[in-house]
């Protein structure tokens, strides 16, 4: 039964990718702007623009362009950047680790703090700890990252001089310098994610705490920590895990504001810059990659969900 479930989910994922690929291909061509003109610049030479357009294959009929795109994609070729001539796959593989290192670190920290905090606040509902958590998370949810990012930069870089304002260093290149460079972007993202996760976990825990089997466990004299960990967590975590999966998929697609503020060459910045320059292959590659990440993360979440709650597999 589990195998059928996995195969069905994988087939759905592939269909999603095919639809996303076609949509991306068409949508980028719908918006005004000509990559050949952007590449040549304000020279005004129509022959040069036409030659550039032909060399990029943009003078062919749209169905032919789509067939070429699809056949290249089937061979694992995402094409080359119009602006830089780099392989799209190579460009994405340079940008994605930047975003991934920020997002995965931030999500892990946010989950480690937010999930227990949400459970604890629900357990202490109506008391000081609960009010404190609700208050803090309300503030965090109201603060946009572009503002908190700049404030953190002003405090820790300009005023205190503790941390560098910019400069991404890959963790594999220099772990220490890489971690220092990540402190502020990760910190800002943790604040944003933590509030969502804590709130989600609090509300789902409250729902579970109202169920009869919890009352029964408490009546049997089971220790509070044991009630929370053994009886509440498994049921209350499922909705939070879905949120976590969606959040992870969304963030891995690029944290544009944070990448811009902290000068991180991540996939969000790459995507926005490529849209501005009408670099079709990069835009297509990035969006397909983001869709792929979404599909994978959601597949994992679905499988974990099914493992946690066997009813889902039916």
């Amino acid at each position: 039964m589990m195998l059928t479930f996995i195969l069905r989910r994988v087939a759905q994922g592939l269909l999603t990718l095919a639809i996303a690929g076609t949509a991306v291909f068409l949508l980028i061509r719908v918006i005004p702007g000509d990559p050949a003109q952007m590449l040549v610049g304000d020279v005004g030479d129509p022959a040069m623009v036409a030659a550039t357009r032909a060399s990029l294959g943009l003078d062919r009929p749209l169905p032919e362009q789509w067939l070429l795109f699809a056949s290249d994609l089937a061979n694992g070729d995402l094409g080359t950047s119009i602006m830089t001539g780099q392989q799209v796959r190579e460009v994405i593989m340079q940008a994605f680790p930047v975003t991934a290192s920020v997002v995965l670190l931030a999500t892990a920290i946010a989950a480690l703090i937010g999930i227990p905090a949400g459970m604890w606040a629900a357990w202490r509902q109506g008391r000081a700890a609960d009010y404190l958590l609700v208050g803090i998370t309300s503030v965090l949810l109201s603060v946009p990252t572009f503002w908190s990012g700049l404030i953190v930069l002003v405090i820790f870089s300009v005023k205190l001089g503790w941390l560098p304002a910019l400069g991404y260093v890959p963790l594999g290149e220099d772990l220490r310098a890489g971690l220092i460079a990540l402190i502020m972007p990760v910190g800002v993202l943790v604040l944003a994610e933590l509030a969502t996760l804590a709130r989600m976990m609090r509300s789902s825990t409250l729902e579970v705490l109202r169920l009869d089997y919890i009352t029964s466990a408490q009546a049997r004299g089971v220790a509070p920590w044991a009630v929370l960990l053994r009886h509440v967590f498994r049921n209350a975590f499922a909705p939070t895990m879905t949120t976590l999966g969606l959040m992870l998929g969304h963030l891995l697609g690029g944290v544009v504001v944070i990448e811009k503020i902290f000068g991180l060459p991540g996939i969000g910045r790459l995507l926005v810059d490529s849209i501005v320059q009408r670099d079709y292959p990069i835009v297509q590659g990035c969006l397909l990659f983001v869709a792929f990440i979404f599909v994978i993360v959601n597949l994992i979440v679905d499988l974990l969900y099914a493992a946690l709650d066997p009813r889902v597999r039916v």
């Binding site: 700049l150 930069l153 002003v154 870089s157 300009v158 001089g161 560098p164 304002a165 910019l166 400069g167 811009k260 503020i261 902290f262 000068g263 060459p265 910045r269 810059d273």
Partner: peptide
């Protein structure tokens, strides 16, 4: 030559002495 696309970040980098 450090790529800093955001003007606010560039300003803070100058003020902190990194640029």
């Amino acid at each position: 030559l450090v790529v800093i696309p955001d003007a606010s970040s560039a300003k803070l980098a100058v003020l902190s002495g990194e640029i």
